[in-house]
Design a protein around this nucleic acid. Sequence first.
DNA 1: GTAATAGTGTCTATGAGACAATATCCG
DNA 2: CGGATATTGTCTCATAGACACTATTAC
Lengths: 253, 253
Amino acid sequence: MNDDPWVPPKVMIAVDLVILTLRASRLQVLMVERGIEPYRGSWALPGGFLEHSEESLTAAAHRELAEEAALDAQTLHLEQLGVYGEPGRDPRGRVVSVAHLAIAPQLPEPTAGTDAADARWQPIDDVLSGQLPLAFDHPRIIADGVERARVKLEHSALATAFCGPTFSITDLQAVYEAVWGMPLDPRNFYRKVQKTKDFIVAVGPARRSTAGRPARLYTAGPCSVLSPPMVRPILSTADAPDTDDCDSDDEEH
Amino acid sequence: MNDDPWVPPKVMIAVDLVILTLRASRLQVLMVERGIEPYRGSWALPGGFLEHSEESLTAAAHRELAEEAALDAQTLHLEQLGVYGEPGRDPRGRVVSVAHLAIAPQLPEPTAGTDAADARWQPIDDVLSGQLPLAFDHPRIIADGVERARVKLEHSALATAFCGPTFSITDLQAVYEAVWGMPLDPRNFYRKVQKTKDFIVAVGPARRSTAGRPARLYTAGPCSVLSPPMVRPILSTADAPDTDDCDSDDEEH
DNA sequence: GTAATAGTGTCTATGAGACAATATCCG
DNA sequence: CGGATATTGTCTCATAGACACTATTAC
């Protein structure tokens, strides 16, 4: 049985990045306009093939992050999102893509890289509503990434990764509002955040810039899982797509 | 830039399966004893290489499920768990493994397959406590699978996948207790399950077997996401390991 | 009857959400 | 001072958990 000369097939490995940030109070994702075939002229997630056989997936993701968004991995959240490897998803042959989710504080407009005709931040709403022509199965990957971010905001301290080194509680609230896409009560949000242990820690005196009473500044606290969690208010019957891959039955309220 | 003759490296793709079931009121995972190198004699998850270039990952997972556990995919939960592709994780070369999580109702003892010297259900506690010699990075994959199952029990109707076609509420409670590893109050559990819409639907009259009042029987309901969710009681300050993959230096920033 | 399990009612502490009220800045 | 934002206090309602209690079977 094990002595036959059969060898398993080999396939190409790619990494794709869903890089989310907050710009102009909106959740935005970094997209590049493809300058080469296939899908020339369509918009795609930054990403690329494994560079050599010994490169780890994480290393490849960090490399692409640096190449396409000029981001060092410092103070940056990066996690695996899932695998997308259906035969036929890439006309160049069998490609298995490992999608990653990256969260970044506010960043300047990017510049197009090697294979890209253009690169820019796109509001999530515009991207997911079918305004832009999207390459490959990237609409699905983006949707999965956004849903992952929404869920992680509830149970992890991810939201602080959207902010700079210091931030006010109102800044943090803006993150939740943008990612969840719903307004929140400032008073209740304030106490909720304070009650979650080790989420944020006060630092420095206060910021003095806008009108009104200055806000105290905070830094991300030492905890990564929130307890109690920041539960997201229910959203009636409309729900978000499941992150599962295999099964695809569901729906309910 | 794009005209150079460089081609991306190709790697082997494997699928591994974390198949969980309930036996003797304990959460158990299917393990096979390897009959060939590498790791001959160690215990590993069922799995194998992609069979040919056009086989989808899901199809490969289902095929292995059938081969190694004699399970058709009917009424069976199967979902993608994550990718494990560190260079050096397999001495045969670069292998990227796509791990899947499968949940099965109680099953008989399996029989060893092609490359396996033995195959059997192992209680999770025994496996994760380092009793058995485990192959590759499978300890990590198993831990990730169990943690995923624990979390999914809170927000999805996954628990019913552990049961047969019909079950009593007490049966369902046993699932939660085994997977979460904690006792639950039968009275409160009863009302909680009933209050979660479309989780379970009554069927048939009642089961009459053990002593005591017969229990009503139920079937899995039409919903996949639970609302309200079945929240798991807090477990003091000790927290569960993160499911993240990339950053291992975090905890904060 | 007793033992055993299924199912119901009730009490209480906690927590989320609504929202009034107060504090501290700018001009 | 008035305008604006930050922070605190209080009220109410829903619900999770503890647990006494009733129901229905086997023996």
